[in-house]
């Protein structure tokens, strides 16, 4: 119960009640969709299982912030904005896919692999997860390492590297807006180890 004490002493960001309700609802929906049966006994079992799972994972879903001063509730984020973001991301993925397919099929193979590093200070670890995942999902860029707020990214072409804009691209701005993070204040480290 260390984790519980941890949460008591620090300030908790996000509502655990909201998380509990949403998580149980999502789990129950998943149960119904996967079983496909509408018998009262099975639905009751599903409801009990999803409530129990949401309750027992509550302490696991308190994630300490990057500066270790507060604790975030993992499943309390703006859901609608998050889905809108994924639609936008999907559009970007399609564009990047076509670009990389062209590069691969080009007989000259116009690649220029490079490591791009930048800093993007964000407090919520979920924002870091979303950003790193988005970068990896977009073909042409792979998040190699994230240490604190330092992103090490391998880019396949010059175009893909420029798309990151040294941590100031549209993707980063959107992720920041999504999690209500402040925009970083100067001192971005943009280094290209060609």
């Amino acid at each position: 119960m260390m984790k519980n004490n941890l949460a008591m002493t620090k300030n908790v960001k996000g509502s655990e009640t909201k998380q509990f309700i949403v998580l149980s609802a999502v789990l129950f929906l998943l149960w119904v969709l996967l079983s496909g049966k509408m018998e009262a006994k099975l639905l009751g079992m599903g409801l009990a299982a999803s409530l129990f799972s949401a309750w027992i994972t509550m302490s696991l879903l308190r994630i300490p912030s990057v500066d270790r001063k507060s604790v975030y509730v993992a499943f309390d984020f703006p859901y609608v904005k998050y889905i809108v973001y994924w639609f936008w991301l999907f559009k970007e993925i399609v564009k990047a896919n076509i670009d990389i397919a062209k590069v691969v099929l080009n007989p000259k193979l116009p690649i220029n692999p490079q490591i791009v590093t930048f800093r993007r200070p964000m407090d919520n670890p979920l924002a870091h997860v979303t950003l790193a995942n988005s970068i990896t999902l977009t073909p042409g860029t792979v998040t190699v390492d994230v240490e604190g707020d330092l992103y090490v990214i391998h880019a396949l072409t010059d175009g893909a590297a420029e798309g990151l804009e040294g941590g100031e691209g549209e993707m980063m701005k959107r992720v920041c807006a999504l999690f209500n993070e402040e925009a970083p204040k100067g001192e971005e480290a943009k280094e290209n180890h060609g």
Binding site: I93, V94, N97, I100, A101, V104, L105, L109, I111, P113, T136, L137, T138, P139, G140, T141, V142, V144, H154, L156
Partner: peptide
């Protein structure tokens, strides 16, 4: 696209750039 990804894995020079090619197949 899966076919292009396979070509990419064969054509690209090193481990990291091959990851990009496999990204084609695993997303779109």
């Amino acid at each position: 696209l899966l076919f292009v990804a396979a070509i990419g894995i064969l054509r690209l020079p090193d481990f990291y750039s091959r990851l990009h090619a496999s990204g084609l197949s695993e997303t779109l």
